[in-house]
Design a protein around this nucleic acid. Structure first.
Length: 716
DNA sequence: CTGCTTCACCTTTTT
DNA sequence: GGTGAAGCAG
């Protein structure tokens, strides 16, 4: 008699966690210890033992993780479709709000403001309150608002509790921001979780109903829950038949977003009688890699002591490569990975998105395929957002955020003056822009009126079609009808071609959505899914090298990993401050990166690097010295030639020019720009100091001579 | 009103 | 190096 699929291939601890029947369970899953395995098997097990799958809710932090979990659980169940909810906190909460919109006091078709929308609302509020952006940046204010919301403070409560000047101002922005959001009929990401918590707390009847729907709860990445998410888990988990939280405090990397490790450290106090199952056997990495990573993270104080035991053999030591400059780092990494037969087995991980560039260039040069995770996201591109804004308007013309985004895209003669008047009227009358545009304020020109009424006719038509047409068909139609396609039609500009491709991609993604969700895929559902989509699930581990931030790499694994840019300023990041909590988070971030590696791990850094287009000296990260020496194999690659290779003078001249630091910007071979003549390259230099004369060859204007101190030349 | 040019500021990390 | 806001000419 063989075991059920859900129990196969599990070690005793994993099995304990999967079989746990009633009440709270905390699985402390060290890196590579089979966390996803436990949670998916547990999900399958519950279904197998006869639990109604619709009463099981599994929550993850990313769509990607949700997708994977659903897929793996489905396989374990013999391919039957899984009726349980598997998704992110945000999508779970959104569904709840859609079901209970009226009770929550929300417009039935409320929309979701993304981070860009949030930022513009904050800016607007600050403008109206006459707050100079010098004092607080809108970004900082938004972050304060977000933190307040995640601490379950209302705008009023926040404002009332402020005593100092800055706090009091921010409180006023917060209040106005909330008013604007409400006027637009929108919720921000934080609201998606905050609102359900409020509602469930104030309405025992709804809480009871929701508890009846959710009998078994599984939460992944518990170390990254913030206060509101934790509150939601408590509301639903306390009375559930089972609650299973899985996490690892050593991989907590979202403190900056309000996550608190305390939630996982305190789990057994919050849920008395909780069973705790540690998973301490690492199946992923070879021992050398694990020793190095464990040695590093052992420097953190706020953690439960634990030992991860390597299940695999020793393997090679971790390589530490030091370079003179960033280009050599990129070259060496690309060369090393070119030796591997399968690019899909390699990942390059870095702290900030901007660091991908030199590696991308190097990979392109060598024709090695690669995938950048995150980065400039598909759904954040202007043309995609514009098209979606039209779609939102079709669903709900009162969507102010969407209205304002596209009312004049493509340009139809509705300019700033007109919009200012509309804004004012909308505020005074307390109605949406759509409504104002139907009865425009008297001050408008005839031209503006005509333009507005044509726009209204367009939107009305789209709204009518939305009743019958599928999202993808509507999308295709509106791109033509709005004149949006025509904007980029026929152009051979790189950018325009890319835009057309993105719009095509958007239409196919809508089709894909319809295919997956069957006949009755509604526009609203499509818009919801898009609002919560992040990177177009550019799933890693495909056919190319994976380039990713350390954050986005969590949960992934690769045979070979390069963690690059191990320098002060990146790791720890310059913005992260010196306090112990923040340093510990940065250390965990590196730990997460290192533990992604199965067979080979390379850490690298450079002594000089181009930052914002300027060469900057870099210092080795303090974390490097915290990694146990015996597990590291160090090498230094400093080229014998002086550093600072500048642009080549001409394609046929491969000799590299040298520009020593501190000797001025304008040297032979340097690429420069002149306000009148455009781009060129310095051919010759005579004299020195104020007398320096330069001969420049311009791409367009040919050869010119200048006295350096008068010529307005800038390095290009 | 539009489209072009210039200039400041930028960068953590993401649902 | 790149982007978005502001400023200016048509």
């Amino acid at each position: 008699m063989s075991e059920a699929p859900s129990l196969q291939g599990l070690n005793p601890e994993q099995k304990t966690a999967v079989l746990h029947e009633r009440g709270p369970l905390l699985v402390l899953a060290g890196a590579g210890s089979g966390k996803t395995r436990v949670i998916t098997h547990r999900l399958a097990r519950l279904v197998e033992t006869g639990v109604d799958p619709r009463t099981i809710v599994a929550v993850t932090f990313t769509n990607k993780a949700a997708e994977e979990m659903r897929e793996r659980a489905r396989k374990l169940l013999g391919g039957r479709p899984l009726l349980s909810f598997v998704g992110t906190f945000h999508s779970f909460a959104l569904r709840f709000l859609r079901r209970n919109a009226a009770a929550a006091g929300l417009a039935p078709r409320f929309s979701i403001a993304d981070s860009a929308d949030q930022l513009s609302l904050v800016k607007e509020a600050m403008d109206e309150l006459g707050l100079s952006e010098q004092v607080f940046t809108p970004g900082a204010v938004r972050s304060r608002i977000s933190h307040a919301k995640n601490a379950l403070l209302t705008a009023q409560a926040f404002a009332d509790s402020q005593t100092d000047y800055a706090g009091e101002r921010i409180g006023r922005v917060f209040l106005l921001y909330e008013r604007k959001l409400a006027a637009a009929g929108a919720l921000d990401f934080d609201d998606l979780i905050v609102r359900p918590v409020r509602l469930l707390r104030s309405r025992p009847d709804l809480l009871a109903a929701e508890r009846a729907r959710v009998r078994h709860l599984l939460i992944d990445e518990y170390q990254d829950t913030n206060t509101v998410q934790d509150a939601l888990v408590k509301l639903l988990g306390e009375r559930a038949e089972s609650l299973c939280a899985v996490g690892d405090e050593d991989q907590a990397i979202y403190r900056w977003r309000g996550a608190e490790v305390e939630h996982i450290l305190r789990f057994d106090e919050d849920f008395p009688g909780a069973r705790i199952v540690p998973l301490e056997r690492n199946y992923r990495s070879t021992a050398g890699i694990l020793d190095a990573a464990s040695g590093l993270v052992a420097n953190n104080r706020r953690r439960r002591r634990k030992t991860l035991v390597a299940d695999r053999g020793s393997g090679p030591r971790v390589r530490l490569w030091r370079f003179d400059e960033d280009r050599s780092e990129a070259e060496a990494v690309a060369r090393a990975l070119a030796e591997r037969s399968e690019p899909g087995e390699v990942a390059i991980l870095y702290r900030t998105n901007a660091q991908s560039r030199p590696f991308e260039e190097e990979l392109v040069r060598r024709r090695i395929p690669y995938v950048v995770v995150g980065g400039m996201k598909f759904y954040e591109r202007a043309e995609v957002k514009d098209a979606l804004a039209y779609l939102r308007l079709a669903g709900r013309p009162d969507d102010d955020l969407a209205f304002r985004r596209v009312v004049n895209v493509p340009a139809r003669g509705i300019g700033k003056t007109t919009l200012d008047q509309l804004a004012k009227a909308a505020r005074e009358r307390g109605v949406s822009w759509w409504q104002v545009s139907g009865e425009p304020p008297p001050g408008l020109t005839e031209r503006a009126r005509t333009a507005l009424s044509r726009f209204r006719a367009l939107v009305s038509d789209l709204a009518a079609r939305a009743e019958t047409e599928s999202p993808s068909a509507l999308l295709e139609h509106l791109l033509e009808a709005t004149g949006y396609s025509a904007l980029y039609h026929g152009s051979e500009e790189r950018e325009d071609v890319a835009r057309r491709e993105n719009l095509e991609e958007l239409v196919s993604s809508a089709r894909e959505f319809e295919r997956r969700s069957g006949e009755d895929a509604t526009l609203a559902e499509y818009l919801d899914s898009v609002s919560l989509a992040t990177d177009a699930d550019a799933a890693a581990g495909g056919r190319g090298v994976t380039l990713s931030t350390l954050h986005a790499a969590k949960g992934l694994e690769f045979p070979a990993v390069f963690v690059v840019g191990l320098e002060e300023g990146y790791l720890p990041h310059g913005q992260s401050g010196e306090d112990e909590d923040e340093l510990e988070e940065e250390r965990r971030l590196l730990y997460v990166g290192m533990t992604r590696a199965k067979d080979e791990l390379t850490l690298s850094l450079a002594a000089r690097r181009l930052v914002y287009g300027r060469v900057q000296p870099r210092m080795e990260s303090r974390f490097v010295s915290e990694i146990p020496r015996e597990s590291v194999d160090e090498r230094t690659f400093f080229a014998s030639r002086p550093a600072f290779v500048t642009t080549h003078v001409a394609p046929e001249d491969e000799s590299q020019e040298v520009d020593l630091p501190g000797t001025g910007e304008l040297k032979r071979g340097r690429r420069v720009r002149h306000p009148r003549y455009g781009y060129g390259v310095i051919l010759a230099q005579e004299g020195s100091g104020d007398e320096t004369r330069l001969t420049v060859y311009f791409d367009r204007a040919g050869k010119k001579k200048f006295v350096a101190r008068y010529a307005d030349l800038t390095p290009a």
